[in-house]
Each structure stands twice: as C-alpha cells, then as structure tokens.
Design a protein around this nucleic acid. Structure first.
Lengths: 236, 236
DNA sequence: TATTTTAACTTGTATTTACAAGTTGTGTAT
DNA sequence: ATACACAACTTGTAAATACAAGTTAAAATA
C-alpha cells in the first residue's frame, strides 16, 4: 500500500489528517512554513505547495506576516454540506443506510446526461442510500458511476462512510468540480415515506454531474433533501 | 493608474484578457511555459504561478506533457456557485423590477450573520428586487450591503442591471466568494403573490453571504426562487 | 509498410537562495 | 507610563537550476 506520492501531497495528507482529527484547534496557528520545513525535511516551496492545497480546499487561511490559521471546513457530504439547527452535526451523528447495495448494470437508454463511449461500454455501478442525522432521514440519493477500474467496489462497506471518502482513500479519485441543477418540488409518496415527511411537503431536488481527476470518469447523482430541520450549506 | 502588481499577476491579467477577448480559441493551446517565460521575460515559477491562477479561475486546463488548453470562461456570480442564473438563462431575457428602492437604514438587532463593527456602525443599504424571465416572476431577492464608501449609491438606477455589475463598474467591488444556505420551503402568502404561484407551493429559499475584494465588505441576500419552470444551475 | 524506438518537446516536482512586505512584541527614549 | 523605533518573526514574490514524467512525432527498425 506504500504509494509514492509527491512530497507535497504527503505533507498535505498529514496536515489534513491532523486538522480533521482535531490536533489543531479551530482558529489556532499551524506551525510556520520554516518549522514545517524542518520537521518534515523538505524545502519551503514544497511546504508552500502543500499549504496552498490546504487553502484551496478550505482547511486553512493564510495571512501574510502572521501565519496559517486552521479553519475546520464545514461538515461536508461530498461537495455538498449540511448545516443543522444550531448544534453542529458531527460525523458521528451522520449515518448511512444502504437501500440498494452497489450493483453493476447497464446505463439506461435515455440518461439525463451524455456519456462518453468508455463510460457507456463499461456499464455503471448503481447505488441508493438514505442518510440520517440523529436517526432522522435527511436525504436520499441515487448514484451512478462508471464501472471503470474499481476493483472490489461492489463488495466494500459503505455504512457510515462517505462515498467520496471511499473513492478518495481507496482509488485516489477526487472530485474536481461539476454541475448541478436545483429545484424545490413537492414530495411524492415514495419520497415522503423515505424521508418521513408528508406527501406534498417541499423537498430540495438536486441533479448533479461530478467531474473527477480521472479523465472521463463522472459521477451522476440525484438527491432528495429534507430541508425541514436542516439546510444545505455551501461555500464558493 | 500604473499599479505595481506582482509579475505573476500582471501575466495573469494579460493572459486572462487575451482569453476573454478571443485571441485564443476555445480548446486551443496556450504557449508553453518556456515560451511564456521568453516572451514576458520572467522565470518558469513565475509563469506557473500565473497559470495556476488561471486554472483556479477556470480559464485553462493543464495537461502534463501536453500543455495548457483554453477553456470557455464561466465567471458570473449567479445564484449558486460561480456561474448561475444570469449565464444560464441568458441575460437578455432577464428583467429586473425594483420593489423597494435602495435605502439606508440600521441593521436589525439579531441579524442572521455576524457583522463586523465597521459594518454595523455604517448602517446598511436595503434593496428588494423581483426578477423576471419572459415577464414571469422567477425570483425575489432581498439584499443588504454595508453603507461604506458607496457615494450616490441610493440614487443610481438598477433597472435591468445586475447589482454586481453596478458594484464592479462603479465602485470596483468584485465578488470573491461566499457561503450560502439552501432550503425548500412552502410559499407564504406574500411570496406566492410575488412569484405568482399558489400559497404552499414549494419554493427554493437561499440565504447567502458574499465576500468581496474589499476587506470587511460583505453582501447579505435572501432569495426566494420559483422553481416551477426553471432550475437553478451551477457549476463548481 | 507496419511496428518499435528514440528524441524532443510538454508540464510536474523539488532544491536553493534572496529579498520584499506584513505583523507582533520588545526595548528604548520621551 | 506612554509613544515610538526596531528587531524578529511571519508569509509573499522571484530567480536559477535540476531532474522526473507524460505526450507526440519523427526516425530507425523489422
């Protein structure tokens, strides 16, 4: 499992882990660039590359003459993130329930998005999940990803684990961007039962296509979000 | 007006202008890094800083061993991330109706977001608009901006003009990012009348705080979006 | 001719060095 | 004690250099 990542990425991973694990308090200072150089045995440009990536991903804020301030990024669920009523939603309260285990199947004839030849010919991995905060259903998502070079994927456990985190840690697939369509719709009977709300209540509806660092590898999702007690939160 | 920008920023501005002006076709190659070094008399790290910024802002895509490919410029602060309604719907069909002319008032006691001292002490400019596509109301927005160094603002005309465009062209204020909260709610009587839908119909509700290139200058908006016939589209 | 190898590009990673510019606390002079 | 100057930090910008790794097309080979 020893991967030969570039040094700046290694450092990025280390610092990211430290920040997420709470080793640095929110608002506190990261060690100075020169200190990081000394500790990790790399030069300043390398350290700066790592810090730059952390800035880009929202983990720290840099201030000239001062230092790098740790800014724990909002609880993110993929690109999205949700913010709850007052009390923060820790990962520990977010549960994932698999409604339909990942299975390989063909793409539907008229899919919402245009597929590349490779994607279409490889088939898709289909996956339905219901995600709960404090045991209350918050959103229901349907995911499609091309079945390209994802060994053992269908047999991995998704319980209480982000799909994106799994893709990142096991296959080095990272989301680089995407596009999405948003609507507010009335909950159908099926959706209202899943999200435990009344039929006809407003539901956030998202349709999204995510790009990754793998050329021609996209993730297609449809999401129904119960915004009664929670909101979708995002920075840009 | 000769600003002493860093060299990499100067190069960034030059290349950005060239891309936007169409000097490089979409999909074509930018000169290689070494060529840019020679032409502009800087070293490769400097060129790379400029290109990195162009990648970050979505103007080019870099491919190792190949080069930098020019991408179509997105960039218009819309409803969702960067690139939204204005570009999605087409500016020409979008009309703006001012429901409440910009007026100066104090900030409410318990505002949704935390304000800086300067913001609070300066008061706010309050502004309500209804925006229409094909003469059908699509969204209603309430905007608050701090009354800091905005001469003649309340007397300017907003009809059929983007608030952001006005801020940029008259005050050199540009949106650099922000955060937002999203919900699907039932339309109240007031909202349903404004958007010409039925009371209780689902409406997209957005609350957002936008950051600008002016330190400590934020724009706070609340938006009600009628997603019956339109969706909010965004790339990220 | 078809295939493989190689050379000449491209961007990616990394070191070393230097100085500029912003921030903060310490020390001195008032 | 207060105000100011300065020193000692911090990050920002920039150069010169080297090699690694991916891409492409020309050249050599079968």
């Amino acid at each position: 499992m020893e991967q030969k990542l570039p040094q700046y990425k290694k450092l990025y991973e280390i610092l990211r882990k430290h920040i997420l694990s709470g080793a640095y308090e929110e608002g506190s200072m990261l060690p100075s660039e020169n200190e990081l150089c000394a500790v990790h045995g790399v030069t300043r440009p390398t350290v700066r590359q790592a810090l730059e990536a952390l800035v880009r991903d929202g983990y720290i804020i840099k201030k000239q003459g001062k230092g790098s301030i740790v800014k724990k990024p909002p609880q993110d669920i993929g690109i999205l993130s949700i913010s709850g009523t007052a009390s923060a939603i820790g990962q520990q309260y977010l549960k994932t329930q698999i409604l339909s285990k990942p299975q390989i199947m063909a793409w539907p004839e008229n899919f919402s998005y245009e597929l590349t030849d490779v994607e279409r010919e490889s088939g898709r991995i289909y996956l339905e999940r219901l995600r709960l905060v404090n045991d209350q259903p918050v959103f229901y998502d349907i995911n499609n990803l091309p079945n390209i070079n994802l060994p053992r994927f269908t047999s991995r456990s998704f319980e209480n684990k982000s799909l994106f985190e799994l893709l990142r840690s096991n296959y080095q697939i990272e989301i680089t961007g995407g596009e999405q369509k948003l609507k507010a719709i009335k909950a159908t009977k099926q959706i209202s039962e899943l999200l435990k709300i009344k039929t006809g209540d407003p539901v956030l509806y998202l349709e999204r296509k995510l790009n990754t660092n793998r050329e021609g590898f996209h993730i297609y999702s449809t999401i129904y979000f119960n915004s009664e007690k929670h909101s979708i939160f995002g920075t840009f």
